[in-house]
């Protein structure tokens, strides 16, 4: 009996390893289209079919990226952008988690706070910018505040919904085992909302990157968004595209970092894991 059990267990563990090569193949297939398009564009520009002034070929963009990186400029800009996103994300995620938990757990708080927050959510966040600049000045504080606002709402909504959606049946098991308030929160409620919370943080992070672009375009002396504006004013599409690529890479890396950090606590999930 137990030998049989061990066998099946080993089988299960060996199971997920098998499709991996195929998954890698799919991931590589995803690169095919952009690579082919890039190569075609490169050929078109080099052979004189297209002029490539407004849409520089990959080699030019690559060279620009390289020179920006070599001069240390790219690093300065990326660091400035990352710092703003990190600060805004930390503030927004903390506030969103806290308020989401409070309104999710306490109906009274939900009745009091949620309508106001829903109304505020209806305001396009960029509309806050003039006010933030008046209140907080044109430097870092107003940018971080804008990003925090962007991060706040998805986190708030996700946490509140997750808490309200906790399965009553599983909470009852906690009651049967006579868990106190604290133990119930730690051993049942927290693990139950963890997946939804992490999903909320990820969409918050995505919005954080969206808003840092807005904040930096509207006035900054450094940052990848500044690089965008600079490229526009100097008529350098290669700089703009280099900045766009940097944004994409940074966003993907930050999301990947969040996923990697939270992977251990979500090991029990199967469906969501495969989607990531």
């Amino acid at each position: 009996m137990s030998a049989l059990g061990i066998e099946t267990a080993a089988d299960e563990q060996g199971g997920p390893a098998r499709p991996r090569p195929r998954r890698a193949g799919v991931a590589l297939a995803g690169f095919a289209l952009p690579v082919v398009l890039a190569v075609l564009w490169e050929i078109a520009v080099r052979s004189g079919f297209a002029n490539g002034r407004l849409m520089p070929p990959p080699s030019v963009v690559g060279a620009t990226l390289w020179s920006l990186a070599a001069s240390g400029e790219l690093f300065t800009h990326a660091a400035a952008t990352l710092w703003r996103v990190a600060a805004g994300f930390a503030l927004g995620a903390a506030a969103g988690t806290l308020l989401g938990a409070v309104t999710g757990a306490l109906p009274v708080a939900r009745g009091l706070i949620d309508p106001t927050l829903q109304a505020l959510r209806a305001i396009p966040s960029i509309a806050w910018v003039p006010l933030f600049i008046l209140w907080l000045g044109i430097f870092e504080a107003s940018k971080v505040a804008l990003i925090a606002v962007g991060v706040f709402f998805p986190v708030y909504l996700g946490v509140a919904a997750a808490i309200q959606g906790i399965d009553r049946k599983i909470v009852e098991v906690g009651r049967v085992f006579r868990l106190g308030r604290l133990a119930m929160a730690r051993r049942v409620l927290l693990p139950a909302i963890l997946p939804a919370w992490i999903t909320a943080l990820r969409s918050g992070l995505g919005l954080g990157f969206m808003f840092v672009v807005a904040a930096e375009i509207m006035g900054a002396s450094e940052g990848l968004g500044y690089l965008l504006v600079d490229g526009q004013q100097l008529g350098r599409p290669d700089t703009i595209i280099a900045a766009i690529i940097s944004f994409a890479v940074l966003g993907k890396l930050a999301d990947g970092l969040l996923v990697a950090l939270t992977r251990p606590v979500l090991a029990w999930q199967d469906t969501a894991r495969d989607k990531l």
């Binding site: 049946k169 599983i170 009852e172 098991v173 049967v176 006579r178 693990p191 029990w268 999930q269």
Partner: peptide
């Protein structure tokens, strides 16, 4: 009046904690 330590309950459904082994 409330759950007791010396009472065990098995529900109609398994109700396992999915995040625990």
């Amino acid at each position: 009046a409330e759950p007791r330590a010396d009472v065990g309950v098995i529900f109609q459904e398994p109700r396992l904690f999915p995040w625990l082994s």
